[in-house]
């Protein structure tokens, strides 16, 4: 029992690598407590060997995503009161990524696919050219703006059924990034990018289940971005600009 009179939380946390198991801890319940607060309490007061990632604690860096009661969430902005089921929490590593230890996953496949989708801005000007003004009310800029606030947390990647089934699939975040760049009129790498996302593991593998949209903590809609890429790549293919 805590000073606030609430019963302690029963928190099951994944310990070990891929062949690990859940271990249960008793954590004092607090007002306005986040899931990251709970995990931090366990490491600071109960078991210093617990591994997990966080940095900013305010929903900007995308480091602290974990599976909370079966759903991928950003733990620093997830209040325990919103997700606990009868004072019980289950916290595991993100799905669809190799477990390094405890709650830390190997994010390399996630970021490598970001590269595979040509998620890098290709400049069309040099530093000697004048800065190109981009009006925020243009159609393309608005489409890019709609998807540009991704924080690379990996929640959509962990939530995606297609990622689970198809290891080649680039995933919602990388394709959403490609879509924002595809709508950037300053970018000079459009054909290569469309070619990259039109491959076997590209945008056409998406089943539009919309789990990415459902779980994205930034309330982005990667499914819509992927649908946009499907249209762009299909038109580019029919025009003969890219190959299958």
């Amino acid at each position: 029992m805590t000073p606030s009179g609430k019963p302690d939380l029963s928190v099951s946390i994944w310990r070990g690598g891929a062949d690990g198991a859940y271990r249960t801890y008793s954590v004092p319940s607090r007002d306005s407590q986040t899931v990251l607060d709970v995990v931090t309490y366990v490491q600071r007061h109960l078991d210093p060997t617990l591994s997990y990632r966080f940095a900013c604690r305010v929903g900007m860096c995308g480091s602290c995503a974990m599976t909370v009661n079966g759903r991928p969430r950003w733990t620093c902005r997830t209040h325990v009161s919103r997700v606990a089921k009868g004072d019980k929490l289950t916290v595991g590593p993100l799905e669809n990524l190799p477990v390094v230890k405890d709650l830390a996953t190997d994010m390399r496949p996630f970021f490598e696919k970001w590269q595979d989708a040509k998620g890098v801005f290709e400049p069309s000007k040099t530093r000697d050219d004048a800065i190109e003004p981009i009006r925020p009310d243009t159609r393309q800029r608005q489409l890019a703006d709609a998807g540009v606030e991704c924080i690379n947390c990996g929640v959509c990647y962990a939530a995606c059924d297609t990622v689970k089934w198809n290891t080649d699939y680039l995933g919602p975040a990388a394709l959403n990034r490609a879509w924002t760049l595809a709508n950037d009129v300053r970018d000079a790498g459009q054909t290569e990018r469309l070619q990259a996302v039109a491959s076997g593991g590209g945008c056409h593998a998406c089943h539009s289940h919309q789990s990415c949209q459902e779980h994205c903590p930034q309330t982005l809609n990667p499914t819509a971005s992927i649908a946009g890429l499907k249209r762009l790549t299909a038109l580019a293919y029919l025009r003969g600009e890219i190959e299958a």
């Binding site: 039109a198 491959s199 076997g200 056409h204 593998a205 790549t233 580019a236 293919y237 299958a244």
Partner: peptide
């Protein structure tokens, strides 16, 4: 599915 198969299926 690549873009060729996508175009044929749709």
């Amino acid at each position: 599915m690549n873009v060729r198969l996508y175009v044929w299926q749709r």
